[in-house]
Amino acid sequence: MSETMTFTQAYNRALDEAMAADSSVLLLGEDIGDKEGGGTFKVTAGLSTKYGERVRTTPISEQAIIGAAIGASLAGMKPVAEIMLMNFITVAMDMIVNHAAKLRFMSGGQTSVPITIRTRTGAGIGAGGQHSDMLEAWFCHTAGIKVVVPSTPADAVGLLRACIEDPDPCLFIEDALTRTVKGPAPVANHRLPLGKAHVEREGSDVTFISYGRPMQDIRKIAPRLAEEGISVEVIDLRTVSPLDTDTILASVAKTGRAVIAHEAVRSFGVGAEVAARIQEHLYAELKAPVLRVASKDVAVPFSRVLEQEFLYKGSDIEAAIRQTLEPRAPR
């Protein structure tokens, strides 16, 4: 069997390769040095030992962390900042939204902010309402920042590497729950293009569009449905924003049906945006309403049963796909 790696190992590999290739790549964040254990999730383990001063453990100062990354990037560095958990990014919103995302535009292209912000999150680990949110839609709502969510360890390597090399700020979101899941390891110095969705399974009946954790659900569901004769085309967005509308539309033009799934809460989310774009372009070709699968519009609850009730489920995805295939009166 070929070599495998976990998501955590994948992030570490991408950082290591990026730092080895380019001395302007710097890391900063809370607890990230080996003295502090190599990061709360061990993503940066070994890197401070290997790269010394280029890896800086910071005070618990999210604004100062992102600000330092922005400033260093204005001076030509390629900083990768870790925000321990995504909910804590709210403390640094001014730096990200008003500064990182906008400086290129507001300076008329004189400056750019090639930083990567790595963070992790996700419900299902009993961490409650302030340690579990998927907030990606907040950032997709701001032009100038790219939002990237990997769904396999190999993609994680390729996408994180691309984020670091990208000339603009990138938010790279890691899933806390599935961080020890394994997948095939990529070749050395693997890179994937940003802004490009991946058709990972071809099909003819329904297009399934997602990113991150629900991709792991569909990989089990789609083959099962295929046995019943339901052919699902699976698109992994990889980059959530800017959205690869062309790939989505090409697929839905073919299938006439679409289901979008994300772990984030349902309302005002990425699913709504994807659905809107599909109907704007393909209204006449649609054979069924575009459906969304998402978590419930509440704070992430603590109790296991409530947290599971909050989360979208694989069975929701399957039900939504079947629903789009139900016979309908002709329009």
Binding site: A64, A69, I70, L74, A75, G76, N98
Partner: peptide, 21 residues
């Protein structure tokens, strides 16, 4: 390098430039 309209936001970014230096 930056002129900000947000009170206080010149400081975290100046640190980053200084860090690069």
């Amino acid at each position: 390098m930056v002129t900000t309209g947000v009170v206080g936001s010149s400081m975290p970014i100046a640190n980053g430039l200084a860090w690069a230096s």
